Computed example of a mutant assay.
Amino acid sequence: MTNSEPQVGPKIGKRERLIGAAMRVFYEQGIEKTTIADIARAAEVPVGNVYYYFKTKDQFVEAVIEGHSRVLADTIAALESLPGPAERLQGMIRGWVDQREMAARFGCPFGTLAGELDKRSDAFGGEPARVMGQLVDWSRRQFAELGRADADELGIAFVASYQGISLLTNTFRDPGLMLGEGARLERWIDELAGR
C-alpha cells in the first residue's frame, strides 16, 4: 500500500528496529521463509535480545500488521493537507507509483503480506482485512466528498486497481506497468471530479 517501513527518528529502540526489520524482511522473503534470526540480523540486534521483545514469529506478524496500519494512517494524515479529495486520491496514486521499483521486485508491501496470511487457517483474526479496510474506507470517503453516489464501488475499484497492478508489475517485473496504470488512474480521478 505504502512504504513498508515506519518513519522513525534517528535514535530508535530495539523493538522499533526489530519491527522495521521484520516489515522489510517479511516483504522481501515472505513470512514462511523468514526466521527470527533473519529479523535480528536485519535489525542488527543480537538474537538473544529478540526474545525480550518477541517470543514468536506470530508476535512479529502482529507487530508488522500494526506497523502497516500506522504507516497507512501516517500517509493518509499527510494527504489531508492537499486541497480536495481528487488531489488526495492522486497523491495516494503518486505514492504507489513512486514505489514501482520495489513493487516490481516484491509486489505491494501489505497486499503480499495479506495474501500470505490468508493461506493460514486463522488468517490472523481478520487483522489484514482490517488494515486493507482502512484504505478502502478512506478511498470511499474521498469519492463521497467528490459527490459520487457510487463512492462504495469506486473505493473498491480504486484499491483493486492498485492491488492488481502491483501483482502484474511484480509478475512481469516491469515497473513501467505501474507507471502507466498510475497515469490512467489520475486521468480517471480527473474525469470523476469533472476536470
Results as ranks from 00 to 15, higher is better:
residue 78 A to H: 14
residue 83 P to E: 14
residue 49 N to I: 09
residue 96 W to H: 14
residue 92 M to C: 07
residue 86 A to D: 07
residue 100 R to H: 05
residue 69 S to C: 08
residue 105 R to F: 01
residue 97 V to N: 03
residue 60 F to A: 01
residue 51 Y to R: 06
residue 90 Q to G: 04
residue 101 E to I: 04
residue 45 V to A: 10
residue 46 P to Y: 06
residue 60 F to L: 05
residue 101 E to F: 10
residue 48 G to M: 12
residue 59 Q to A: 13
residue 55 K to W: 04
residue 84 G to A: 12
residue 75 T to L: 06
residue 41 R to C: 04
residue 93 I to V: 15
residue 64 V to I: 09
residue 43 A to M: 07
residue 89 L to R: 09
residue 85 P to E: 14
residue 47 V to D: 13
residue 48 G to P: 10
residue 49 N to T: 15
residue 99 Q to N: 11
residue 61 V to W: 00
residue 74 D to K: 10
residue 82 L to N: 11
residue 86 A to L: 12
residue 92 M to E: 06
residue 67 G to Q: 02
residue 75 T to G: 08
residue 104 A to W: 00
residue 91 G to A: 13
residue 50 V to R: 01
residue 99 Q to R: 11
residue 42 A to I: 07
residue 74 D to G: 13
residue 83 P to W: 11
residue 78 A to L: 10
residue 39 I to M: 13
residue 46 P to F: 05
residue 77 A to L: 10
residue 48 G to H: 08
residue 57 K to W: 02
residue 69 S to E: 13
residue 71 V to S: 03
residue 64 V to T: 02
residue 82 L to S: 07
residue 95 G to Q: 11
residue 104 A to N: 03
residue 95 G to A: 10
residue 46 P to R: 07
residue 47 V to H: 12
residue 47 V to F: 12
residue 54 F to Q: 03
residue 101 E to Q: 14
residue 74 D to H: 11
residue 94 R to F: 05
residue 103 A to L: 13
residue 40 A to N: 07
residue 37 A to F: 10
residue 44 E to W: 06
residue 84 G to N: 15
residue 90 Q to D: 09
residue 100 R to E: 01
residue 62 E to F: 09
residue 88 R to G: 06
residue 81 S to L: 13
residue 46 P to G: 05
residue 100 R to I: 02
residue 53 Y to S: 07
residue 67 G to P: 01
residue 95 G to C: 09
residue 73 A to Y: 05
residue 82 L to G: 06
residue 105 R to Y: 03
residue 83 P to D: 14
residue 69 S to N: 14
residue 49 N to Q: 15
residue 72 L to V: 05
residue 85 P to C: 06
residue 69 S to P: 05
residue 48 G to N: 09
residue 77 A to M: 04
residue 62 E to H: 15
residue 94 R to T: 14
residue 53 Y to P: 02
residue 89 L to C: 07
residue 70 R to P: 06
residue 60 F to V: 02
residue 46 P to M: 05
residue 46 P to V: 10
residue 74 D to I: 06
residue 39 I to L: 08
residue 55 K to L: 09
residue 79 L to K: 03
residue 41 R to L: 05
residue 91 G to V: 15
residue 74 D to C: 05
residue 105 R to Q: 06
residue 72 L to F: 01
residue 53 Y to V: 08
residue 71 V to L: 03
residue 105 R to G: 03
residue 105 R to D: 04
residue 46 P to W: 10
residue 77 A to S: 09
residue 69 S to R: 15
residue 98 D to R: 11
residue 42 A to R: 14
residue 71 V to Q: 02
residue 61 V to G: 00
residue 105 R to P: 01
residue 74 D to A: 13
residue 89 L to E: 09
residue 51 Y to N: 08
residue 36 I to W: 05
residue 67 G to W: 00
residue 59 Q to P: 05
residue 100 R to F: 01
residue 104 A to H: 02
residue 48 G to V: 15
residue 83 P to S: 08
residue 38 D to Y: 12
residue 74 D to F: 06
residue 77 A to C: 04
residue 74 D to W: 07
residue 74 D to P: 05
residue 57 K to E: 00
residue 87 E to W: 11
residue 64 V to K: 02
residue 82 L to K: 15
residue 96 W to S: 07
residue 70 R to G: 04
residue 46 P to D: 09
residue 88 R to L: 06
residue 81 S to E: 15
residue 92 M to H: 07
